[in-house]
């Protein structure tokens, strides 16, 4: 039980981190980005190449990979999302494009690195045992890093000019433009931070489990569940939502076979849609 709670908190922090970017894009650009989770995988593989093939140390690999993923997010905005905004495209076309991108990213990874699982080059350490449960060093590092990044996001959103601009465009992009906010610039920042955080989550997830082409894709449903639970466009909601989803998935193993973990996300999401479609803290439009 206690072990499941620990595992749930660790998984929850990863989902939470990845869901921040998903919910920001959802709130600002108003579409469900199905490719978001594959950038988790992308980040993990780039870090893997830097760490294992090029022999860089893991911390350096981590930061470079996150920066590359964030830059790719910005690049795709110029290549795809910005032209579509110019055309005033319907949100359904954006969703279909995002699924196409997801297929491209995931299969490019399979094309280059194959389908087998990979691991970072790290010394194997014994887990810490206490109160009858085991916490691995990777879980502790992962949790610590995830919390650190969530705190950073909080300070960025509350205290910096760009963070405030991002919250403003998420609330109402037209109103934000009228009050003189450069929305294009804020959107670029949003992609960099959102996809960068997804890469952070992907690398941490790869540390705790293994690196494989489907690792992100299998988390897209829990991530959407976290976003919807927390209210679309609300980064704090996504963090809480991620924790709730992570914990419920792990604790569900007390009553359900572990194969159906994913069903828990779907179940929670359906309950939210039926009874509280704006999410727990929803302020945005449903």
């Amino acid at each position: 039980m206690l072990q499941l709670i620990v595992n749930g908190i660790v998984l929850g922090s990863i989902i939470a981190l990845a869901a921040i970017g998903l919910t920001m894009v959802y709130g600002v650009l108003n579409f469900a980005n199905f490719s978001h989770a594959d950038f988790m995988t992308f980040g993990a593989y780039i870090a893997f190449v830097l760490n294992v093939a090029l022999g860089l140390n893991i911390i350096l690999s981590f930061f470079i990979a996150v920066a590359i993923a964030g830059a790719l997010g910005v690049f795709l905005d110029f290549l795809v999302w910005k032209p579509m905004r110019r055309k005033n495209a319907d949100l359904v076309s954006l969703i279909i494009i995002s699924i196409g991108l997801s297929l491209i990213v995931r299969n490019a990874i399979i094309f280059i690195w194959g389908g087998s699982t990979r691991n970072f080059d790290l010394p194997v350490q014994r887990g810490i045992e206490m109160l009858g449960i085991t916490i691995t060093h990777n879980q502790l590092t992962g949790l610590g890093t995830a919390i650190l990044f969530m705190v950073l996001v909080h300070f960025f959103l509350k205290n910096t000019k760009m963070g405030k601009a991002m919250r403003a465009i998420s609330d109402d992009i037209n109103l934000a433009r009228l009050s003189g906010i450069d929305s294009d610039k804020a959107i670029i920042w949003m992609w960099f931070i959102g996809i960068g955080l997804a890469a952070v989550a992907g690398i941490l997830y790869g540390l705790e489990t293994t690196i494989r082409p489907n690792m992100g894709w299998f988390l897209i449903l829990p991530m959407f569940a976290a976003v919807i639970l927390g209210g679309i466009g609300n980064p704090y909601g996504a963090m809480v939502g991620g924790m709730v989803i992570g914990l419920s998935q792990e604790l569900s193993m007390l009553i359900l076979p572990s194969e159906y973990k994913m069903g828990v996300s779907l179940g929670i999401m359906i309950l939210v849609l039926l009874f509280k479609p704006r999410g727990l803290f929803g302020e945005t439009k449903a």
Partner: peptide, 28 residues
Amino acid sequence: IPTLRLREDYLAIVTIGFSEIVRLFLLN
């Protein structure tokens, strides 16, 4: 029923989950 009263992207999210649950059910 739970999705079509709401915005159109909810259907996309729920259906993709539904199809995976169906597959997991058949597998397990």
